[in-house]
Design a protein around this nucleic acid. Structure first.
Length: 929
RNA sequence: GCUGAAGUGGUGGAACUGGUAGACACGCAGGACUUAAAAUCCUGUUCGCCCUAAAGCGAGUGCGGGUUCGAUUCCCGCCUUCAGUACCA
């Protein structure tokens, strides 16, 4: 029989499913191993060839680990809440649950076609009530907790109430809002219920606070930064402004230090760890208070600075235009200018404000603050380069040390004060800390190291500042003005939020007539009829963000069907943490940070054991699209014709480029017949060919429908089979690297599998293996691959394994090897990569069907690889010129003698005495002349 | 802007710890088989120079420098592309 991948692959996929080959138990005497993939969002477009890249890698790893004797948990599910389904619902009226369900079915079929060894009995969907019940449950725990800084962990809000009842706010060390009040126990006990709740909310880990959002009035909704382009909505082009809104938030900043420390304990790619460190952004500095001048009531502008040493260089203070003090600081004569500036700022997104460092803008408030050390009057400005959400939303501007402050000072003619004797300030700010201070009163003549403690001490003495650690990370906003997400299990009584009862979970997503905001601008849930808690109280109308469901899902896989807890204690104790997590680096700061945060919280409340959820993490690169172009000939008026010019002839013609569907292009050559029949207007198209072919241009772009570069794995599988797809995706290059998809090399992988198949068959394709003893050469080839694949998989270098398999099969083909002893072991080594063909041949060899998944990986024997000769490359001045075969037992001195006595070597050095001969045994000889 | 990553033949890539640059494939060219095509097999294929050929010479891993007997690999400066940047997931 020839290699019939269609029959073989269907046969084994069916076998695995009906025998539950990959169902895994929560108890085993084997060691456990947990391999997790980042689960997909089931989009309407279906899987494209980029999605399975990581899944194939993790499946190879999983199958390999099974062969190595581990009990492996390898589950899959769907992150099925999200915007695209909602967008589609808005357009079509179709309920997102229905589209989501359809999409999931499609995804499942596509995943099944690839032959993954997932334990599907553990499948989860974040949008199913049985799952989001527990997402809501975790939210409730967060709402019911506060962060105790004495114990450095989250504790129940009840214990905080007990403290308030006994001692008031005194002695409470907790992470809270800035405006948490001070009160005595007596005060607390006299507070009414509402007041108590208001105070408690300032401590809860899930809490309400005002935050700034991109508000689009015309769409009646909040937009993500990337839905906003140049101040207008991407959809519709309506104006977008920055608006403040009450929002649910997560006090992730309470965990900043622990999130930072945990990074030292995980085995993650260093760049990713670095990104998280930068995101958390710990900086050590000082907070300084500037008192507003000429006020009866003392008012302060508080700033955070990492360069308190530059305090004598402050020549103005800048507030973010949204800063709460701005309104009261503006003097009448400046009112108009400031108002105008604030209007202008509202139109800019935060990202625009950060990205634009060239243009300088700002407005003077008319007010002054007093320098805390010199008592001098300092003007207060507002400018959009200061962001409200960063630090305190105010900076002390030091033009001599900070480039943005420098440009601002130059632009508005504000003084630039030199503070270090080494500073060169003619062209730009100089932020170095070298030399000694000048014009700096207390610290004149001191160096940076000496100056900082002096200043901190003085500021503390004057109660004008103190040393402080600041984090760049902000509390995460947890509400979304959307329909297709988890409802927040909260209702309001007199504007105070209360949790519903735990027995009332899940709080189901109600039906609505349209998936749009209400006329009064409330989120879609505002449309739900009679949706009230106990028929009286308003529910929270926003839903949870996309990251809620994905911040704990790896626990649900451990015990996916439990309806009493999110996962049983036994399951959590057994599987502990994820041993290997594979996914895209685009999740570096979002998903991976939130997941770590929730995990730490769950540990604090005692329901999980591990401080870090993902022990080892591998990033897979993005698969980009590789678009193909055709070139339409333009006539003398510049209008398009129906003639297309081949890529190589472009210089001779005036043309315009058009995307062409990559599925009708093969190795950059256009299939003319398919092109003609693709659209009626191309039926009579003419072509100017080169060498009789139409060659297309190409470019790397995002994979998207609009660029006609989407490749569906199903098409590849129909043509070449799943085993070829699996191996080809690995063959494309290193897993971590981003690369464009193209099928140019896929034939080679397909040919390889056919060659492998032929090893087991005679020329007439009858199954035929021999029981003869293998030769030395055959054993060497086998043991080389046993070792190579083991090494490669352990370091996640899957592409190099594929090449090595090719080399191995080429060698065995040349040796005419059909020995059972060799081939049987080779099957096991190859099976993680190409499981279907291997199962089939395994059965043909007479083994029990399906037993291949749980056999042992062959044992490597180094004896078969021992060489006694080596072909030494002989280089002259580092350039390889010739090779000499020598015994590996020769010591460097003997090698030198033998090399220098060689005729060809003598000819090279032309009778001259070599300056130096470098010999690395078993590696190289280098002669310096 | 900030943070992170990547640039090697016509193409995807290999070279794992500073030691033979281009393994393995694709494509292309030539050949075998065939009435023909497909499939399959064989040979060649970094570029340039020289040459009937064998052989030889020179250059070469984004660009410019440096360290070293020796650099794709280490260091400094630049260029280009990609990703993230907090409501896409």
């Amino acid at each position: 029989m020839d290699y019939q991948f269609r029959t073989i692959e269907k046969k084994w996929q069916k076998f695995w499913a009906s025998n539950q080959t990959f169902k895994v138990s929560n108890t085993s005497n084997k060691p456990k191993y947990y391999v997790l993939d980042m689960f997909p969002y089931p989009s309407g477009a279906g899987l494209h060839v980029g999605h399975p890249l990581g899944y194939i890698a993790s499946d190879i790893f999983t199958r390999y680990k099974r062969l190595k004797g581990f009990n492996v948990l390898h589950p899959m599910g769907y992150d099925s809440f999200g915007l695209p389904a909602e967008q589609y619902a808005i357009q079509t009226g179709q309920h997102p649950a229905i589209t989501t369900d359809t999409n999931i079915k499609r995804y499942r079929e596509q995943l099944d076609n690839i032959g993954f060894s997932f334990d599907w009995s553990r499948e989860i969907r974040t949008s199913s009530p049985s799952y989001y019940k527990w997402t809501q449950w975790i939210f409730m725990q967060l709402f019911n907790s506060y962060y105790n800084t004495d114990m450095d962990k989250a504790q129940s809000i009840e214990s905080l109430i007990a403290k308030f009842e006994q001692n008031g706010s005194e002695g409470v060390h907790a992470v809270s809002d800035e405006d948490a009040s001070n009160f005595t126990a007596a005060d607390w006990n006299h507070f009414d219920e509402e007041r108590k709740q208001v105070e408690l909310l300032k401590y809860r880990l899930a809490y309400l606070r005002e935050s700034s959002v991109n508000w689009c009035q015309a769409l009646g909704t909040v937009l993500a930064n990337d839905e906003v382009k140049d101040g207008v909505s991407e959809r519709g082009g309506y104006p977008v402004i920055q608006k403040k809104m009450m929002q649910w938030s997560m006090r992730i900043t309470a965990y900043a230090e622990r999130l930072l420390e945990g990074l030292d304990t995980v085995d993650w790619p260093e760049p990713l760890v670095e990104m998280q460190r930068n995101w958390i952004g710990k900086s050590i500095g000082a907070s300084v208070k500037f008192e507003v001048a000429d006020r009866q009531e003392p008012t302060f502008v508080e700033v955070f600075t990492t360069r308190v040493d530059t305090i004598y260089g402050v020549s103005f203070v800048v507030l973010a235009p949204e800063h709460e003090l701005v309104a009261s600081l503006v003097k009448a004569e400046q009112q108009q200018e400031v108002d105008q500036y604030i209007e202008q700022t509202k139109k800019k997104s935060e990202r625009d404000r950060m990205a634009d460092t060239r243009s300088v803008s700002g407005a003077f408030t008319g007010s002054y603050v007093l320098h805390p050390l010199t008592e001098e009057k300092i003007p207060v400005w507002i400018a959009d380069y200061v962001l409200a959400g960063y630090g305190t939303g105010a900076v002390m501007a030091v033009p001599s040390g900070d480039q943005r402050d420098y440009l601002f000072a130059k632009h508005f003619n504000l003084p630039i004060i030199k503070i270090l004797d080494s500073q060169q300030l003619e062209e730009e700010a100089d932020s170095r800390k070298e030399g000694v201070y000048v014009h700096s009163d207390l610290i004149n003549g001191l160096t940076y190291e000496a100056a900082v403690p002096v200043l901190i001490k003085e500021l503390e003495k004057k109660k004008a500042g103190k040393a402080k650690i600041n984090f760049r990370m902000r509390d995460a906003i947890f509400g979304r003005q959307r329909y297709w997400g988890e409802p927040v299990p909260v209702y309001f009584k007199n504007e105070t939020p209360y949790l519903i009862k735990e027995q009332e979970l899940p709080l189901l997503l109600p039906e609505v007539d349209k998936y749009l905001p209400t006329e009064s601008g409330e989120p879609p849930l505002g449309r739900a009829k009679d949706w009230k808690y106990q028929q009286m109280y308003e529910y929270e109308l926003s839903t949870m963000p996309g990251w809620a469901g994905s911040s704990w899902y790896w626990y649900r896989y451990m015990d996916a069907e439990n309806d009493r807890v999110f996962a049983s204690k036994e399951a959590v104790d057994y599987w502990k943490a994820v041993d290997l997590y594979i996914g895209g680096s685009e999740h570096a700061t979002g998903h991976l940070l939130y997941s770590r945060f929730w995990n730490k919280f769950l540990k604090d409340i005692g329901v999980v054991k591990e401080e870090e959820p993902f022990k080892k993490l591998i990033n897979q690169g993005m698969i980009q699209g590789r678009s193909n172009f055709i070139y339409r000939l333009l006539d003398e008026n510049g209008t398009g014709t129906n003639t297309f010019v081949s890529y190589g002839l472009l210089q001779q013609y005036k043309t315009t480029a058009l995307h062409v569907d990559v599925n009708i292009v093969h190795n950059d050559v256009l299939d003319l017949a398919k092109f003609r029949s693709s659209r009626p207007e191309y039926e009579n198209a003419d072509f100017i060919l080169e060498d009789g072919r139409y060659v297309c241009g190409h470019e790397v772009e995002k994979m998207s429908k609009s660029k006609f570069n989407v490749v569906n794995p199903d098409d590849i599988i129909a043509q070449y089979g799943a085993d070829t797809l699996r191996m080809y995706e690995m063959f494309l290059g290193p897993l971590e690297q981003s690369k464009p998809w193209n099928t140019n090399g896929i034939e080679g992988v397909y040919k390889f599998l056919r060659k492998f198949w032929k090893l087991f068959h005679d020329p007439q394709l009858n199954f035929h293996v021999s029981d003869e003893r293998p030769t030395k050469a055959e054993l060497k080839s086998l043991h080389k691959i046993i070792k190579k694949v083991e090494d490669d998989i352990e370091r996640f270098s899957f592409n190099t394994s594929v090449s090595s398999f090719m080399i191995c099969v080429n060698e065995l083909t040349d040796l005419n090897c059909n020995k059972r002893e060799i081939l049987q072991e080779l099957i096991v080594v190859l099976s993680p990569y190409a499981p279907h063909i291997c199962e089939e041949l395994w059965e043909l060899l007479g083994n029990e069907a399906g037993s291949l998944s749980y056999v042992s990986y062959p044992k490597f024997n180094p004896d078969f690889l021992i060489e006694n000769e080596f072909e030494y490359p002989i280089s002259f001045n580092g350039k390889m010129r010739m090779k000499l075969n020598m015994s590996l037992s020769l010591e460097p001195d003997d090698i030198e003698k033998e090399v220098l006595n060689n005729e060809d070597v003598q000819r090279y050095i032309d009778g001259k005495q070599p300056k130096k001969v470098i010999i690395v045994k078993g590696k190289i000889v280098n002669i310096v002349v």
